[in-house]
Simulated scan of single mutants.
Amino acid sequence: MQPLHRTVLLNEAVQALQIQPDGHYIDGTFGRGGHSRAILQRLSPRGRLTVFDKDPEAIAVAQALAAADARVTVRHEGFAGLATLPAASVDGVLLDLGVSSPQLDDAARGFSFRHDGPLDMRMDPARGLSAAQWLATASVAEMTEVIREYGEERFAAPIAKAIDRRRQERGPVRTTAELAEIVAGAVKTREPGKDPATRTFQAIRIHINAELEELQQALDASLSVLRAGGRLVVISFHSLEDRMVKRFMQRHSRPEVDRRAPMVEPAAPLLAEVRRVMPSAAEVQDNPRARSAVMRSATRTAAPRPAAGGRRA
Rank of each mutant, 00 (worst) to 15 (best):
A186Q: 00
A197T: 05
P196L: 14
R205D: 14
S224M: 00
L226E: 10
V187Q: 13
Q216S: 15
P192L: 10
E211V: 02
G193N: 04
A228W: 09
G185W: 08
Q202A: 08
I182P: 09
L219A: 05
F201N: 06
R227K: 13
A177L: 06
E213V: 02
A184Y: 02
L212M: 13
Q202G: 05
F201L: 05
R174F: 09
A197L: 03
R190C: 03
G185K: 06
T198P: 03
V187K: 01
E211Q: 12
V187W: 02
R190F: 05
G171Y: 06
V234R: 07
G185V: 10
L212I: 11
A218N: 06
Q217D: 15
R174T: 07
S222Q: 11
E211W: 00
V233A: 11
A210D: 15
L232Q: 12
R205N: 06
G171M: 09
Q216T: 15
I206H: 10
G229Y: 04
R205W: 10
V187A: 01
E191M: 13
T175P: 05
N209Q: 05
K194T: 02
A210W: 05
R170K: 15
V187F: 12
V233C: 11
G229D: 09
R190S: 08
T175S: 15
A203V: 03
T189E: 15
R170V: 01
T200W: 00
A221P: 01
L215Y: 06
A184R: 09
A177M: 01
G171T: 08
E178N: 08
L179C: 02
V225Y: 13
A186K: 08
A221E: 00
K194F: 05
K188G: 06
A184D: 13
K194N: 04
Q202E: 11
E181I: 00
E178R: 01
P192S: 10
L232F: 11
L179V: 02
L219I: 04
V187N: 02
E214C: 01
K188N: 14
T175L: 04
R205T: 03
P196I: 13
Q217R: 04
V234C: 09
K188I: 00
A186E: 11
N209T: 02
L212T: 05
R227F: 02
